[in-house]
């Protein structure tokens, strides 16, 4: 299969079981939205796909274009085309937003000098994308996530996703903390990612983005399991009935 595939994924973090047999697919050119209550394992799923070491895979597999990623480091997964925009990215004092993007690009161009701009057109692109995302230029020269507002963090994560040009983009709550115009803008930009042929795994609590980007699939993660999966109608069900209802339906189905 082309795209990202997660099979029967069981994961533990700090001794705690957070995923209990997750199956899902993200195909190129589509948005697969994941919803679910707080603590249900959404971020854990994203981290595990990205290979964060603290998340220990106990069973199952993660594949990109049919190839298992399990033995690979985070760096290697990123280089194979995965990108994750974090729900709450950490501050990196001393490293500017532009610096990390230039380093990421240089790395992909095979350069050993990570800091010198090799392709000047990149700087123009950074400015243009920043503007489109509603960021001012000066943020590029600021230390990564240091003093960034909630909305600036989200937009800067998305900016990096565009600059790095991955195959699969995992977005962990890119809409939380955004103002109304921001939600719209960011949703449209996310659609732009799939228009470029990328696959998007979109973690969100609210269906408000779906108005603008119309997800191809929606799955609901509850207690580390996919309790329901389908089209946009699933989002509607979540909005109307809430997670307790979906959980009880799921339990009933499983007997």
């Amino acid at each position: 299969m082309s795209g990202l595939e997660v099979r029967n994924l069981h994961v533990r973090v700090a001794g705690k079981k957070v995923l209990r047999g997750v199956d899902l697919k993200v195909e190129y050119g589509e948005v697969h939205a994941i919803m679910g209550p707080n603590g249900s394992g959404k971020s854990s799923l994203a981290y595990t796909i990205m290979g964060r070491e603290t998340f220990e895979v106990e069973d199952g597999d993660i594949l990109l274009d049919g190839e298992s990623l399990l033995g690979l480091s985070t760096e290697e997964r990123a280089m194979k085309g995965l990108f994750m925009a974090l729900q709450d990215p950490p501050q990196i004092p001393g490293v500017r937003l532009s610096t990390i993007m230039i380093a990421a690009i240089n790395k992909r161009l095979g350069s050993t000098d990570l800091t010198r701009v090799r392709d000047p057109s990149i700087v123009k692109r950074m400015y243009k994308l920043a503007e489109e995302l509603g960021l001012t230029r000066d943020i590029l020269q600021r230390e990564l996530n240091v003093g960034f507002s909630g909305g600036e963090k989200k937009r800067s994560e998305l900016l990096q996703a565009f600059i790095v040009d991955p195959k699969i983009v995992i977005l962990d709550e890119p809409d939380s903390g955004l103002d109304i115009d921001g939600v719209r803008k960011v949703s449209e930009m996310i659609r732009g990612l799939t228009d470029q042929g990328k696959g998007v795994l979109l973690i969100t609590h609210y269906a408000r983005m779906f108005k603008y980007l119309d997800p191809d699939r929606v799955s609901v993660l509850i207690d580390g399991k996919i309790a329901l999966s389908g089209g946009p109608e699933v989002a509607k069900l979540v909005e109307d009935k809430g997670y307790a209802y979906i959980r009880s339906q799921y339990m009933a189905r499983r007997g």
Binding site: R52, E53, P90, Q91, I92, V95, A103, A104
Partner: peptide, 25 residues
């Protein structure tokens, strides 16, 4: 660990991440 994960998720190796942090410092 979180900072290091973040930097490596951009495609950098741990050492490259460290060198950027040190240079910034």
């Amino acid at each position: 660990e979180q900072q290091l994960f973040y930097m490596t998720s951009r495609g950098l190796s741990e050492d490259e991440a460290k060198s950027l942090i040190v240079l910034g410092f």
